[in-house]
Computed example of a mutant assay.
Amino acid sequence: MVEFFTDDYRYQRAAQPYLTAIARGVRDHPPTVAFLLEGTDYEQSFRDAVPLWQKQWAARGSSKCPFWSNYWFNPCPSCNCRIDNSVSMEIDALFFLENGDGKILAVHIEMKREGEGLSIGQAEAYRPRAACYRDQRRVRKGILHHDHFIAVLFCGVNTDIPLVSAFFDRVITHDAAHTAIPAYPST
Rank of each mutant, 00 (worst) to 15 (best):
E116H: 05
N85A: 09
S45A: 15
A106Q: 08
R134H: 05
A130P: 03
L105E: 00
Y133I: 10
K103T: 01
I104C: 02
G102K: 02
A93P: 03
Q56A: 15
K112Q: 14
C76H: 14
Y71N: 00
V87C: 14
P30Q: 07
G117D: 14
G39Q: 13
N74G: 06
K55H: 11
F67G: 04
Y133M: 07
T40Y: 12
E98H: 04
K141C: 13
L37G: 07
Q122D: 11
A93V: 10
V50A: 15
R129I: 05
L97M: 09
C79K: 10
T32Y: 03
E116W: 05
R138Q: 13
S78R: 12
Y71A: 00
C132L: 04
V87T: 15
A34M: 06
V50P: 02
A93L: 11
V50G: 13
I120E: 09
V107A: 05
L118K: 01
R47L: 14
Y133W: 11
F96D: 03
E98N: 02
S69Y: 01
G121M: 03
S63N: 12
E116L: 01
C132Q: 00
A49F: 09
W68R: 00
N99I: 00
E98L: 01
Y133A: 05
E90P: 03
S62K: 12
L52F: 12
P75C: 09
G115S: 04
R134A: 04
W72Y: 08
L105N: 04
A106V: 07
A49T: 14
V87H: 15
R113T: 07
R140P: 09
W72P: 00
T32E: 09
D92F: 02
V50T: 14
R138N: 10
G100E: 06
W68V: 08
F67V: 12
L94E: 02
W68M: 08
G117W: 01
